[in-house]
Amino acid sequence: MTYSAPDGSRLIEDISTAGFYPQLVEDVVRDSLDGRQPVSHLVQLETHFNNTELHRHITVLVLAEDVLHITHVDDQQFDDSGRDVVARVSTETVGISQIRSVTLSYAYHQPQNYRPDTPIMELTLAVSWTGTQQLELYPAMCEDPECQADHGYTGTAASEDVVMRISSEADGKDAVEGAREFARTLRRANLAPVTDSGAQIAQSPHQRPMTERRPSEAPVQRPRFGHRFTGRDSGRKSS
């Protein structure tokens, strides 16, 4: 199941709808946001079967002002009855300026019949910031079926830190379009020109915050730093 919204207003609702330890996930996400307001989000709950065991895990991506938050929660059973369970939580905060690439891969069914309104069958979102190389190697083969020579290995190398696959068959067409819109928002924030409001330029002007700020509360002021490579003031804060 995959959920998203053009702004961050449905973040808590979508976490609750996913139904995977929603209070725990909500608290972890709130803590990682550290007062920042969500601009856009993507929530994905996945289920896997391993022999007789059932495993679920949830990934929450939140674009919040000048950073991207990644929260991942899965559970592990320590007994056959499933009563002894531990939830493992990992969070990461990445500055928008640190993101190297936002890659979208599409799949269309029956491309010979493609029209502008043809729905996307499958979408894969890959976000990279550390340059980690994912390697897939397999023995190289030649065209001679009787050849016994060692041709070494061949394969592919992809730079990716987060990869999310959304299928219209499993998640629905709205989920695919929502994921694409999240990727577009993230890409705009990453590539947008620097302004006085920094990454806030990616935020919808009609966005409703996740939590209402009390009138008496003053906005949290965060320090601004110059860009260490170009010397310009990036308008982005430390994470």
Rank of each mutant, 00 (worst) to 15 (best):
H57A: 12
H57W: 11
I58Y: 02
I58S: 05
V60C: 12
V60A: 00
V60Y: 00
L61P: 10
L61V: 02
E65K: 04
V67R: 13
V67D: 05
L68V: 02
L68F: 01
H69A: 07
H69P: 00
D75P: 01
D75A: 07
Q76M: 09
Q77M: 00
F78K: 05
D79K: 05
D80V: 01
S81H: 02
R83A: 03
R83Q: 10
V89M: 06
V89L: 05
S90E: 12
S90A: 15
T91C: 14
T91E: 14
E92G: 10
T93Q: 07
T93W: 01
T93I: 05
I96K: 02
S97Y: 10
S97G: 12
S97C: 09
S97M: 10
S97K: 12
Q98P: 02
Q98W: 01
R100V: 04
R100H: 08
R100Q: 12
S101A: 13
A107Q: 15
A107G: 14
A107K: 15
Y108C: 09
H109K: 03
P111Y: 11
Q112T: 13
Q112M: 12
N113T: 11
Y114M: 11
R115V: 15
R115G: 14
P116H: 06
P116L: 00
D117S: 15
P119N: 13
I120G: 02
M121D: 11
M121Q: 12
E122L: 15
E122G: 09
L125M: 11
A126R: 12
A126G: 15
V127Y: 03
W129R: 06
T130A: 07
T130P: 02
G131S: 08
T132D: 12
L135S: 06
Y138P: 00
P139K: 10
P139Y: 06
P139I: 05
P139F: 00
A140R: 15
P145A: 06
P145K: 03
E146G: 08
C147P: 04
Q148W: 03
A149G: 04
A149S: 13
D150V: 06
D150Q: 12
G152L: 10
G152S: 13
G152I: 13
G152P: 07
T154H: 03
T154C: 09
G155N: 02
A157C: 03
A157N: 02
A158L: 09
A158S: 10
A158V: 12
